[in-house]
Simulated scan of single mutants.
Amino acid sequence: MMMMIMMKGLYSRSSVVFMFVLVFLMWVHVDLAEGGDTNGLDYISWEDLQVDEQRLALKYNNGVGVIIVDQNGKGHSKTVQGAVDLVPVNNRQRVKIFIYPGIYREKVLVPVNKPYISFVGKRNATASAIITWNSKSSDKGPHGRPLGTYDSATVAVDSNFFCATEVTFENSVVATPGGKGMQGVALRVNSPKAMFYRVRIKGTQDTLLDNMGNHYFLKCRIQGKVDFICGGAKSLYEKCRLQSVAENYGAIAAHHRNKPTDDSGFSFVGCTIRGTGNVYLGRAWGDYSRIIYSNCNMDGIIIPAAWSEWNHPNRKKTAVFGEYQCTGRGADRRHRVPWSKSLSYAEARPFMEKSFIDGDQWLRL
């Protein structure tokens, strides 16, 4: 009899333990489904750019893996920076920051010690969540010295495996022709690997400081006047709209590359170029600047010469500026500078695929 009682008690306790383990595993499954433990798989996927908005609206998310930004106080934070601050240092899970529609007037830093962060706005409403500020390079910083272009950024991303969708990054400074210290960065990207899908990046001079790392911009709209895509990163821009708002003269891209061994460059594939003014396709910021346009449609705003060595004649021999099968009035190469290149398919192909940015290693799209 005693043995039967002991066995019954043991069975009862085992059942409780089993049920506890089962519930725990179910909780972990829900947590990972929403938050996404990386488990050593360092890549960006479509899932990282998605939030179940209906679930958020019904308040079923319980704050698991998603931080809600709502300037009306109905989320976890009223500011985007406040949401970033809530992410644990050296986190190993994907954390999605869902930004409700609104104009968020703030500067935001996503630091290097907070990887795997997603900025997600309302689906099909890229213009509704706007992060904006108005710093320019000549403004005085906290130590009384000019900020410089680097620190003028409205949003600065230093963290690895960052991604964003349906959000607008803006610097509202309006650069005047010939003005000094008017550089105003909307988005600065120092992330080793980052992806931007259906985002808007608005400014006038040095709008996007694509500074360093491997980056993928897909179906984005980037707007500016002078060098509005600049930096030394290795980036693929696919099916983006490059919008010039120049009154007179301007330039789309200025790539910084000082040595032929630097593994960097800007590649534009299937993009459209629209807007106003007369603009260069690119300017050589560094002796070995590298910019390629493939299968792009160019409006008539492109200056016929298209490319500038930035008053450094020696760069005509070393800069890599090329075009492959572009269309539109601005794609006429009859008056291009002779040191730019009309590429063959074999020459253009390495710049046209995600392998250009080693995307097969960190993109799962």
Score class of each variant (00 low, 15 high):
Lys114Ala: 01
Gly277Gln: 13
Met352Tyr: 07
Arg92His: 10
Asp31Leu: 07
His76Ile: 02
Tyr216Leu: 04
Ser308Val: 11
Tyr293His: 04
His215Cys: 05
Met195Val: 11
Val226Arg: 11
Thr272Tyr: 10
Asn90His: 15
Gly300Val: 12
Gly250Leu: 13
Thr176Asn: 15
Cys230Trp: 09
Gly65Ser: 03
Leu365Met: 11
Ser264Lys: 14
Gln361Tyr: 15
Asn248Lys: 11
Lys136Thr: 05
Gly282Asn: 09
Leu147Met: 05
Met4Val: 12
Ser137Asp: 03
Arg241Ser: 09
Phe351Gly: 00
Asn39Gln: 15
Thr318Gly: 00
Lys96Ala: 03
Val80Ile: 06
Leu236Gln: 12
Thr154Tyr: 10
Val89Leu: 02
Gln81Ala: 00
Ile222Thr: 04
Pro142Lys: 13
Leu218Ala: 04
Gly359Met: 11
Ile229Ser: 03
Ala305Ser: 15
Thr272Asp: 08
Gln205Ala: 02
Trp285Ser: 14
Met6Val: 10
Gly270Ala: 05
Gly178His: 15
Val89Thr: 04
Met298His: 07
Cys240Ile: 11
Gly232Asp: 01
Pro177Gln: 08
Gly359Glu: 05
Ser308Met: 11
Leu56Cys: 05
Arg241Lys: 12
Leu49Arg: 06
Cys240Glu: 07
Glu323Tyr: 15
Asn72Lys: 12
Lys59Gln: 14
His215Asp: 02
Trp307Ser: 01
Gly270Leu: 08
Ala305Tyr: 11
Met298Val: 03
His29Lys: 15
Ala127Cys: 06
Lys354Pro: 01
Leu56His: 03
Val320Lys: 06
Arg94Gln: 10
Val66Asp: 04
Leu86Trp: 08
Phe217Pro: 01
Ser289Phe: 09
Val21Pro: 02
Tyr11Ala: 14
Ala306His: 12
Glu347Val: 02
Gln361Pro: 12
Tyr216Glu: 01
Lys122Tyr: 09
Lys74Pro: 11
Ile292Glu: 08
Asn39Thr: 13
Ala246Asp: 09
Asp287Trp: 13
Tyr150Pro: 00
Met6Trp: 09
Gln361Leu: 15
Phe20Tyr: 10
Gly203Asp: 08
Arg198Asn: 15
Val64Pro: 01
His143Pro: 02
Thr272Cys: 05
Gly65Lys: 01
Ala284His: 08
Asn124Ala: 13
Ile44Thr: 01
Val17Asn: 06
Asn72Leu: 04
Ile117Met: 02
Gly322Lys: 00
Arg283Glu: 14
Ala319Tyr: 12
Tyr288Cys: 11
Gly275Lys: 11
